[in-house]
Design a protein around this nucleic acid. Structure first.
Lengths: 104, 104
DNA sequence: CGTAAATATATCAGATATGATATAAATCGA
DNA sequence: TCGATTTATATCATATCTGATATATTTACG
């Protein structure tokens, strides 16, 4: 993984390699991160067409700041919350399946 | 939702309706539950062809009991863990996408 | 049968994710 | 440019999920 990408991920709270730069993510860990980022991006795109972050937050009993984090690929956001948010934009399981299938 | 299905879900820790039987799951909540159950089932099928629960557990630094719960659709298991486990069976994002797209 | 391997259930302390709140920063019209 | 709306960041107490451990139960098979 190049340094630029690593920096981008680490800014969002991802632990890309611990203890200096020797450890890398395993392939599976990478895929998981990429899936989350793909979900984030898709959430942002879908939500922007329909409503504000606050609107979406109240629909799923969450908070505007949490939606902001979800859309920015913050590491503290679970796939769970990403799914709930995306579903609240009207996405179907098929839609989510496609987002995930598009990874890697 | 019929009583039999409700009982099945509640046995696994899902809160299907609170305060007596008046509250139902919203469509989105239902989809989320169904996605998790689909992932559980798929995990079980894939893992059984390849290894024991203990084997899989050690591959993802988890524990055999947690894999058991994951495969049984226990409500305490996150989508996160389900993904990690399924990926450890060699599943690709495409595979996971298909599992999710097959829901509903 | 018996017994060993695999799976399921129970419990728990620690880690992580949560919504809430406050507020800063950015964006957008008038 | 300015005020208002939207989005981002920071902090925090609580809830949820975690792996670990112990152990019960089931399954496979001699």
């Amino acid at each position: 993984m190049d340094q630029a990408k690593k920096n981008r991920l680490e800014a969002k709270g991802w632990k890309v390699g611990t203890v200096s730069d020797f450890l890398e993510l395993t392939p599976e860990e990478s895929i998981l991160v990429e899936i989350k980022l793909a979900l984030s991006q898709s959430l942002k795109e879908r939500r922007q067409k329909l409503m504000t972050q606050s609107d979406l937050a109240s629909r799923i009993s969450s908070s505007q700041p949490r939606i902001a984090k979800a859309e920015n690929g913050d590491a503290s956001v679970s796939i769970e919350l990403l799914f709930r948010a995306i579903l609240a934009t009207g996405a179907t399981p098929q839609d989510i399946g496609e987002i995930i299938a598009s990874v890697s």
